[in-house]
Amino acid sequence: MLKVIDLDKSYNRQKQSLKAVSFTAKPGEVTAIIGPSGAGKTTILRSVNQLIKDDAGQILLDDEDIRQANKSDLRRIRHHIGMIFQNYNLIGPLTALENVLHGRLGAKSTFAGMLGLYSATEKNEAAKLLQDVGLADFALQRCDQLSGGQQQRVGIARALMQHPKMILCDEPIASLDPKSTKLVMDILRELAQSKQLIILINLHQLDIAQTYADHIVGINQGTIVFEGPERALTPEKLQAIYRQPETKAVTADAN
């Protein structure tokens, strides 16, 4: 279980990007964070694995506060948090299989990691994961020769190679066509259920969030304005989530 409690973050003095953000994400569920651009979705996600140093609050993953962790504890916790990105962030010139194997590097000593000493079990697991995401035939292809949807599935396989408790997804489908979007979202939902993972996903497409999320967190200007199941998302709540500060009377626009 992931519990975020009263998280604050300001990048600079003029503006507070997160204001006492609290929410919960459960294993086995897809939790979507929705809100307009600039609301603070990315800031939340990157605070959860401490790529960003936030200012105050608690981030408890299975009751361990990641904000209190020292350097080596942070590395251990991060190893059990997968992350996938809008731009996939794979090493382009390397093969899909090599990129998936990178998911194991965090579990290795500096020396074994430097030399890339992977066991036969690990290599088989990587091949199996690629097969699971439908890329068995592409294992030995360079990643920069794969389509966006294929690269994102390599990214998922890499995250799974970490044996994660949780996968963080920052706009994972923003660069994908509808067909790839469905493929990727189906995989993520299936993973949450079959492996009892916490899937925390930033989305700006409201319809996708409504289709796939079990639990929805709505954020507007750094403040959580809604948390609950998808069916509790009334038009009034949507209005509050997508409200624009400067101009009044703008309709909720998912994009």
Binding site: N49, L51, R75, R78, G103, L105, A107, K108, Q162
Partner: peptide, 12 residues
């Protein structure tokens, strides 16, 4: 950064 986020050290 994606690799750092999964707990990989600098030299690996």
């Amino acid at each position: 950064e994606a690799l750092k986020a999964s707990g990989v050290r600098f030299w690996p």
